[in-house]
Amino acid sequence: MMNSGTTLPVRAPGADLGDLLDVDAVSALILAGERLLLAGDEALLARLPRGTWIGGTIPYFVAADGGTSSRERLFCTRLPAEVEVDSIRLYDAASLAHVCADAPAEGFSVMILPAFSEVHSLFARNAPNYEDMYLKPLIGWIAGVHLDDLGRATPKVFDGSRGEGCEERAVVLHARLPEPRYARIEIVNLFRPGSGPGLRFTDKGFSAAKVLVDGVEQDFAAWLRRQGSDTRLPLVADYCGAMVNVSIKSVEAGRVDFYAPVFPDIEYRIAAPIDDYVARFLAALPADVPPVTFSCNCILNYLYSNLEGRHTGPMRGPATFGEIAYQLLNQTLVYLTIEG
């Protein structure tokens, strides 16, 4: 399968599948028929040959050598041999709601959405109500840009099978698994609700002017300032035991913006502070987790917890503008394992 002249990392049985590679090594893998999930700089992704791969733009990674930023290398996740790629599709605003219905009955789907696009916004607000949502495993991430390029560059996703890059559509790789194998998606979120009051919002959305604090309506921005809240801490909601974050983007007079939508039927609390993210993260990893097929973490965890140069164990992958474990998440590590 492999080009004998190219130096490629060895994949030991049970070893994690992802790491940083230069564009020539990734090209060789594609030409050798490997099925890849890629993350990296737009110029690198655009140079790759056609093949069975999807990708998205982001220059931040948590790799084998720890957290790093690179415009010269791509984070490359190879799908295990037992995975059969069913299809690679691009979804626009009108077709996005069918993403789970289109997935094979037995398998999983990997989705990459360009940040700030309409499909990003639609998915964030409506994914929980998509047909077959939660029935079929859906994992992925939000493509972004180098923080120095915010406002100048546009996040993109790539469909390697067509050699096409998109700013306004989502790319999805639908995969099948042989019986009795099945895919499982889990998260590691260190944030827990703090001891403050319960917060509710009257409307679904990425920003809020008002909040109900223990049932009493308040100006949310003013309330946050009065509390002296650290806005690096997300709002956290308890979804039957799963802690789901909504990160705060900015606080302006009369308005608070979020990186994911708040929902009116959910109660949130400001998260309790975390002293040492890496130490707590390593302690929080499940001891018996099978080899990780894919994972990604949040750019905000990368930044706020100073992950550059620091190791987070077996969980490697891009540090993204949002994580998808069925629905859009913030400040959370998501990972996929194949079990059974």
């Binding site: 929980p128 939660y134 029935l135 499982r184 979804y239 039957c240 035991g241 789901v244 069925y326």
Partner: peptide
């Protein structure tokens, strides 16, 4: 019930609401 599977936690939250 104690739930150890993410997808069931998310689904049950939606269904209950």
């Amino acid at each position: 019930i104690d739930i150890g599977v993410l997808s069931l936690k998310l689904l049950l939250t939606r269904v209950r609401s």
